[in-house]
Simulated assay, not measured.
Amino acid sequence: MTKHKIYTMSFASVYPHYVTKAEKKGRTKAEVDELIRWLTGYSQEGLEAVLEHQTDFETFFAEAPQLNPSRSMIKGVICGVRVEDIEEPTMQEIRYLDKLIDELAKGKAMEKIQRK
């Protein structure tokens, strides 16, 4: 079976779209970065290095320092699919991030997005 195209896309090529989506709704790049760090355990410096090195999505998640155990509490539909029902681990991680950005753009409080 061939890998999904998004696995080989650089995280840096999609990141500006996350930021734009959030900023259009009055949120900030700093909040996007905070959610990415919360989900993956990357430091800000680590995140910036990933962006600079054009790391692909598969590597981005495979090398994440500490995937947040609370991410399993992320529920809901993204791209017509329930994130909790996605069986392929890397795709589920990507969709968790998509869901977090959606919630941020919809105005949810950071504490709720981070399942505190």
Rank of each mutant, 00 (worst) to 15 (best):
D56A: 14
V81I: 01
Q54K: 09
I74L: 05
T55K: 12
H53D: 09
S70R: 10
T40C: 12
S43R: 05
K75E: 04
S43T: 08
R71E: 12
V50Y: 09
Q54M: 07
G41F: 01
S70D: 12
M73S: 14
L47V: 00
P69S: 09
T55W: 09
P65A: 06
Q66C: 13
L35K: 07
V50D: 10
G80V: 01
P69K: 13
C79L: 09
Q66S: 15
E58G: 14
G46L: 14
G80N: 03
C79H: 05
F60K: 07
D56G: 13
T59Y: 09
T59P: 10
W38Q: 14
L47T: 00
L67Q: 12
E48K: 09
N68W: 03
D56H: 13
W38C: 12
V77L: 05
A49C: 04
K75P: 00
S72P: 01
P69T: 05
Q44T: 11
V81F: 02
C79Y: 07
E52S: 07
S70I: 04
L67M: 15
S72L: 05
T55Y: 08
L47G: 00
Q54F: 02
F61N: 10
P65R: 08
H53K: 12
E34N: 08
D56Q: 14
L35Q: 07
P69W: 09
V77P: 00
V77I: 02
T55S: 11
F60H: 06
H53R: 11
L47D: 02
